[in-house]
């Protein structure tokens, strides 16, 4: 194909049509034209005056100002991190159970992962919000809503992290466990000192992605019924929007999410690329 040839039959257009390169140029031109038309239609249909008044209302945006960061973002970070810590610990335990020689451990772990990956996170939060107090009337979680939020986010993310850890543990060569055992380390000691540290290094990029997902899922905390002091970004934006009858705060909340999620996603991709270069 790329062979240079002086043969005239190759340089001429094929009979009855364009050369592949011409056809590609034409097709790209059509795509650009469609794109321009779509943008033009959207721009013409939109009510720009209303949009700038509703979504870019700086007076309304200013009203939420210190609280957006000092309350809403702060709570979002707290919910996310506490959920992540719980999910990390539970996920690691589930991954170890999945590898166990004790069959019931493997069953419990597999069942847990299937159930909590298969359910919408919202449903879990509704169950924690209204089901948990009925089932365990004596139980009070530390920090009330904070505890419930950590539990909900932890239960959901544990299922995903268990699968991630399982892959990480399997990626550590078998010889590492053998070397540790042959030095006289008991199984759990070898796991903790030798295998798990290596597995965690392997799964740092997917765990960073999990953190991004959790950060967004923390918006579900609003279904637990929160006070003004416990409010997170999404509810904060929504509440402000109703107070001022103007959706600007929702946009502002959205931008605040992006301030966190875009750099985190970038970090995850960088870690991924660095790992690829190392191995």
């Amino acid at each position: 194909m790329s062979e240079p040839s002086s043969s005239p039959t190759l340089t001429a257009a094929p009979p009855g049509g364009l050369s592949p390169r011409r056809r590609q140029q034409l097709s790209r031109g059509v795509q650009y034209a469609i794109l321009v038309v779509v943008i033009a239609v959207i721009a013409l249909l939109a009510d720009w005056r209303e949009i700038s008044k509703s979504f870019f209302n700086f007076t309304v945006a200013g009203e939420g100002m210190p609280a957006l960061f000092t309350v809403a973002l702060r709570n979002t970070v707290i919910y996310t991190l506490s959920g992540f810590v719980l999910g990390f610990a539970l996920g690691l335990v589930l991954a170890l159970m999945r590898q166990s020689s004790v069959a019931p451990y493997r069953w419990i772990s597999a069942a847990y992962v299937e159930v909590f990956r298969g359910l919408p996170a919202l449903l879990i939060f509704l169950m924690i919000g209204s089901g948990l107090p009925l089932a365990f009337p004596e139980l009070t979680l530390p920090g009330d809503v904070y505890g419930k939020a950590a539990l909900g986010l932890g239960l959901v993310s544990a299922a995903y992290m268990a699968e991630t850890f399982r892959a990480g543990l399997q990626a550590v060569p078998k010889g590492q466990m053998e070397a540790a055992r042959s030095l006289g380390m008991p199984y759990m000691r070898a796991m903790v000192s030798i295998v798990i540290p290596q597995a965690i290094r392997i799964v740092i990029p997917p765990l960073t992605n999990e953190l991004v997902l959790l950060f967004k899922d923390s918006s579900l905390v609003l279904f637990l019924g929160v006070t003004a002091a416990q409010v997170e970004l999404a509810k904060f934006g929504n509440d402000q929007a109703s107070t001022f009858a103007n959706p600007t705060p929702i946009l502002v909340s959205g931008l605040t999410y992006l301030i966190i999620t875009i750099p985190l996603g970038y970090v995850a991709r960088r870690l991924e690329a660095r790992k690829g270069a190392h191995r």
């Binding site: 053998e178 070397a179 540790a180 055992r181 030095l183």
Partner: peptide, 20 residues
Amino acid sequence: IDAARRRLGMVFQQFNLFPH
């Protein structure tokens, strides 16, 4: 068995050093 293995040094074909 863990106590017993302490008496036995093992050297593997693939070294199996702890890379971290």
